[in-house]
Write a protein that binds this DNA or RNA. Structure first.
Lengths: 143, 143
DNA sequence: ACCTTTAGGACCTTTTTTGTCTTCTTATAT
DNA sequence: ATATAAGAAGACAAAAAAGGTCCTAAAGGT
């Protein structure tokens, strides 16, 4: 019933990336460990982590000693990247897609409003890095 | 796949309210007429209109000559009210609800970010009235 | 060889979305 | 009174999306 809600997948993705960001640089983490610590179903998290690898947020290696780690420093990863990696682009209204996808009024007056909504969301999410979310000190991330 | 998307119900709601707002003050419109003009399934629209009545956005009357009309002038109805009437409150993250609903870290550092996202969305949607969306003149609604 | 770990995808269940349909109530017209 | 014309309410159903499991394959380490 709540609108514009983040899905569980998105929430799990954030938990997962935060876990990775909390590990010392160079550490490789196992899906099982991340899942347990983050309280996320293991097989579901595995898929999320693979999506991270696919979009270049994480790297993985197989076999003994294998696992996942961040592909970049946490201060070079924004919250938006993490969320969009698993949820797709932020598009509050279908009409914000390319031309032709909106069957009705192309010149509809509502479109620019949704565009503004989108821009605001993106701007907030782009303004927060994973490193900021992990930091213990309470520097106010809301600027 | 797209995130934060308005549902069809929300889109239909906007089409419906815009139709009502375009009618001369005092006009009563039939569900069937609104549905046809707005290209929305009639029975579905009927439910949406009833929700409008329930939250006080529209009034209705039955029998011959009955139908729906706006309960207030269109410049006293914001886009947010319309969307929330059918989609519920705008809450990008479950944790923005009251206390206790977030099982994990209450002091989670991600929460304030979602709160900011919510505030931004609400502020954009609150800043647009139905009257502005209906006006023909191209005064820039994006301020 | 054998074990460990991710990769990929088929598959399933539950919930939400998107409707339809029937019955009831209210109001008007004749 | 009776017929007719609406909306009100809610049961029901199909389709899509979300949430999650499981199995097999591939790659890397011992």
């Amino acid at each position: 019933m709540e609108m514009m809600e983040l899905t569980r997948k998105g929430e799990y993705a954030i938990r997962g990336i935060l876990y990775l960001a909390r590990q010392p640089r160079g550490t490789v983490s196992l899906v099982g460990d991340i899942a347990q610590a983050s309280e996320v179903p293991k097989t579901f998290l595995a898929k999320i982590l693979r999506e991270f690898v696919k979009v270049g947020l994480a790297t993985s290696s197989r076999g003994t000693g294998g696992g996942f780690s961040l592909a970049r420093p946490a201060d070079c990863i924004t919250l938006r990247e993490v969320v969009e990696a698993v949820e797709g682009p932020i598009l509050p209204n279908r009409c914000l897609l390319g031309t032709g996808t909106c069957e009705r009024d192309v010149t509809c007056r509502v479109h620019p409003v949704w565009k503004k909504v989108r821009d605001q969301i993106v701007s907030v999410l782009d303004g927060v890095t994973i490193a900021e979310l992990v930091r213990e000190d309470d520097g106010d991330i809301l600027k």
